[in-house]
Computed example of a mutant assay.
Amino acid sequence: MMCFPDFPYPDDYPNYMHQSKLQEYIKTFTLKKNLLRYVQFETLVSSIKKCLSFLVTGQWEIVSEKDGKQESAIFDAVMICSRHHVYPNLPTDSFPGLDQFQGHYLHSRDYKGPGGFQGKRVLVIGLGNSGCDIAVELSRLAAQVYDLKGLGKQT
């Protein structure tokens, strides 16, 4: 469901991809479509304003800064990606007794790898993309990985 319509995943990719596979797919797509020429890394956008002719053209003036140099450019569209997933939502008040829990809990944003989960029993709450990726990765070394309903070990 997450692939680009004109660029399907390779046949040898698994259904539940590790983040490294997804990153490999995006890099391959970017190279095949020659998109890197449109990307500016490590560039600060310092100003976004409607052009004086906005009502006619719909264009925007963007001022950016890189290496101490300012540059102005005109764009037909602006997309602001504010990364709402960057702020984790950990509703601890929804889990009565959590303050007495002897184990460790964390948000998927704080998960950096399977180290430290060897031989442990792990409960994954929320099986979106991140939850599934983490459950699959941990199933290889944790004693057991359960979903919220406790349906058993993830494979």
Score class of each variant (00 low, 15 high):
54 F>I: 06
26 I>Y: 13
32 K>S: 08
7 F>K: 03
73 A>D: 07
105 Y>L: 01
122 V>K: 00
13 Y>I: 15
128 G>T: 11
88 P>D: 03
152 G>W: 05
81 C>V: 08
49 K>W: 02
55 L>T: 02
76 D>K: 14
115 G>Q: 15
7 F>E: 05
38 Y>P: 00
21 K>C: 07
47 S>V: 12
133 D>C: 10
149 K>P: 01
155 T>N: 05
43 T>W: 08
39 V>L: 13
140 R>T: 03
8 P>Q: 14
6 D>A: 08
142 A>C: 10
80 I>W: 10
147 D>L: 04
121 R>H: 06
46 S>M: 11
39 V>P: 01
27 K>A: 11
119 G>P: 02
50 K>D: 01
51 C>K: 04
24 E>W: 14
36 L>K: 08
143 A>S: 14
7 F>L: 03
4 F>G: 00
125 I>T: 03
71 E>A: 12
30 T>C: 12
22 L>T: 07
155 T>W: 03
45 V>S: 06
3 C>D: 10
154 Q>K: 07
62 I>H: 12
111 Y>W: 15
76 D>R: 10
49 K>T: 11
13 Y>F: 15
76 D>N: 15
126 G>V: 08
125 I>N: 05
136 V>R: 05
102 Q>G: 01
146 Y>N: 03
54 F>C: 08
131 G>V: 02
86 V>G: 06
98 L>P: 04
134 I>Y: 09
11 D>P: 09
12 D>S: 10
124 V>A: 04
12 D>A: 12
126 G>Y: 10
111 Y>G: 00
32 K>G: 06
38 Y>F: 11
122 V>P: 00
134 I>A: 04
9 Y>L: 12
128 G>E: 14
121 R>S: 04
46 S>V: 15
101 F>V: 01
60 W>T: 10
143 A>N: 08
87 Y>G: 00
19 Q>C: 09
133 D>R: 04
65 E>S: 12
102 Q>C: 01
95 F>W: 09
112 K>N: 05
19 Q>P: 01
135 A>G: 14
74 I>V: 15
110 D>Q: 00
51 C>F: 05
84 H>K: 01
88 P>I: 06
20 S>L: 07
61 E>N: 14
144 Q>A: 07
134 I>D: 03
3 C>L: 01
118 Q>S: 13
150 G>D: 04
107 H>N: 02
49 K>P: 05
137 E>T: 02
93 D>K: 11
58 G>Q: 08
20 S>I: 05
12 D>H: 15
5 P>C: 09
81 C>D: 02
10 P>C: 12
54 F>N: 04
84 H>T: 01
26 I>D: 06
48 I>F: 10
155 T>I: 09
77 A>N: 13
34 N>C: 11
144 Q>N: 12
67 D>W: 13
131 G>P: 09
8 P>G: 11
89 N>A: 07
119 G>E: 15
39 V>R: 03
5 P>L: 12
